[in-house]
Amino acid sequence: MIRPTSLILMVLAAAAGGALFQVAFEVSELDDELARLNRDIRTDRDAIHVLRAEWSFLNQPERLEELTRRHLDLLPVTGKQIAGTGAVPVLPQDELPTTGSNIAGVVTPAAIPTAAPRAKPAAPAPRAPVTRVASKVNRADLARSLDDVLREVMTTPAAASGGVQR
């Protein structure tokens, strides 16, 4: 007859074996998952690569200029529009509050050093054109993107850029 100790040991052995195989299968599944994720990452990286090319293509200065002309009331910055803070008239001292600050740690205007900080001219930030935004890039999007870029670069008529033609 089987003694209780043997029974317990057998059950334990079976349980250990079962758990072992369970873990092994889980690892194998995770392995597959990892491989799939890596594949996805690679696909996405390729997609990013294509999109970067497209982004650069869409950001041609000439194209941005044309879009700005069409949609915005903006012109390039000229020298006349840039001035240092030193050129801003300063309020007379007595019109400024002299009794320290109401808020702890906040410097009152009177305490601000009068030396004019270096003028930082505002470089015109190129307006990015709104293009399609895909939350998840899939194969079809990638294909369409690459299609657009290749077609455009391959068929851009020489005259479109308005260069000197002879």
Partner: peptide, 9 residues
Amino acid sequence: RRVYPHGRL
């Protein structure tokens, strides 16, 4: 394929 997004520029 080599692609030049800024073309003739």
